[in-house]
Simulated assay, not measured.
Amino acid sequence: MNQSLLSIIAFIGGVCLAIQAGFNTQLGVLVKKPILASISTSISGVLFAFVFVMLFSKDIPNIQTAKQVPWYLWFTGGLFSIIGITLYYFTIPKLGISKMISMGLCGQLVFSVVAGHFGWLDLPLEPITLKKMIGVSAMILGIAFINSN
């Protein structure tokens, strides 16, 4: 796949996450428990993922392959997902969606640049360059503008 198409797909993924955050924030506010909205996201996510695997996956890993995966990799993504999503649903009604999403993206960007530089989480090494620093700085400046009155 070429870079342009991958970039468009990534952009659409971000739009989907913002839409999902908006809907589930409404749910969290109505039930007065953001964690219940996170549970709803997780359960419905499992159901939709299962359908997508059945429709689009050519082969499913066998038991032997699944056993080779360290146990914690089956759970830690879900833990951080629930924490992050619940924090989104908690803060969106207080900050607004544009402020919360901009701050969330800033956290993702800063962490990803540092994690890539050091190869944390077994990620490919991506050294911090002057271009990356300028880009991160521009994003932080943009976030400051978004969050200013």
Rank of each mutant, 00 (worst) to 15 (best):
N2D: 06
S4C: 02
S4M: 08
L5Y: 10
I8Y: 14
I9G: 09
F11S: 05
F11E: 01
I12Q: 00
G13A: 06
G14W: 03
G14M: 08
V15F: 14
C16R: 00
C16V: 10
C16W: 07
L17E: 07
I19G: 04
Q20T: 10
A21Y: 11
A21C: 14
A21D: 15
F23H: 06
T25L: 11
T25P: 08
L27C: 04
G28E: 09
G28A: 09
V29W: 07
K32F: 01
K32Y: 02
I35G: 01
A37R: 08
I39W: 11
S42T: 12
V46L: 15
F48C: 12
A49V: 13
V51P: 04
V51T: 09
V53N: 04
M54Y: 10
L55T: 01
L55V: 09
F56Q: 05
F56S: 09
I60Y: 14
I60V: 15
T65C: 07
T65V: 15
A66T: 01
V69R: 03
P70F: 04
W71T: 06
W71V: 04
Y72I: 11
Y72G: 01
L73R: 03
F75P: 00
I82E: 01
I82W: 12
I83H: 02
I92Q: 05
P93M: 13
P93A: 12
K94N: 02
L95I: 03
S98N: 08
S98Y: 12
I101P: 03
L105C: 09
V110C: 05
S112E: 08
V113R: 00
H117W: 08
H117R: 01
H117K: 01
G119C: 04
G119Y: 07
L123Y: 09
P124A: 06
P124G: 03
P127A: 11
I128G: 02
T129H: 02
T129Y: 05
L130H: 00
L130T: 05
K132L: 11
K132V: 02
M133R: 00
A138S: 14
M139T: 12
I140G: 03
I140E: 08
G142V: 03
G142F: 13
F145H: 05
F145K: 01
N147K: 11
